[in-house]
């Protein structure tokens, strides 16, 4: 009994690539259809990272070369390290820039953070109110 190892390798690789492409398509549809910036961010972060990782891993299984597999593991490592950091930074900037939430989002546990950073009290007014314009007064003082 002999198994065609090349055929088995191709089957494993194509299953991995098709799963990755499926997750990538789900992420793209989520980016287009979800109602809110924050929900779109969650769809991108999870779906695109998983999809790209599966595609790259499938190609690495196909090439069957240690040097190639090392590079592919490096790509996976960098992506898994950097993607949550980038998502966290972008979402934090969005909260500080007061991007609006969806109306069905449950914000009860989040109120404390907003209160600590004074993001809610200042939501209506400007952060730096204008000083009274007093350049004419100074001109009077110099006389």
């Amino acid at each position: 009994m002999n198994i065609d190892l090349h055929f088995v390798k191709e089957i494993i690789s194509s299953v991995l690539i098709l799963m990755g492409v499926f997750f990538m398509l789900v992420a793209a549809i989520g980016l287009l259809r979800l109602p809110d910036f924050y929900t779109r961010m969650s769809a991108i972060t999870k779906g695109a990272t998983l999809g790209m990782g599966l595609i790259v891993l499938g190609i690495g299984v196909y090439f069957n070369d240690p040097e190639m597999m090392f590079k592919i593991l490096a790509i996976l490592f960098f992506t898994i390290i950097t993607s949550p950091v980038a998502a966290h930074a972008i979402t934090r900037t969005a909260i500080h820039k007061k991007v609006t939430f969806w109306k069905k989002t449950n914000l009860e546990e989040f109120e404390e953070y907003l209160r600590e950073n004074r993001l809610k009290e200042y939501a209506g007014q400007k952060k730096y109110p204008k000083e009274p314009h007093n350049s004419i007064k100074r001109a009077d003082d110099t006389e």
Partner: peptide, 15 residues
């Protein structure tokens, strides 16, 4: 917003 465009850019890079 501009941040939506940054997220779309992230997805484009992954693609």
């Amino acid at each position: 917003s501009l941040l939506d465009r940054i997220t779309a850019f992230d997805l484009i890079v992954a693609n």
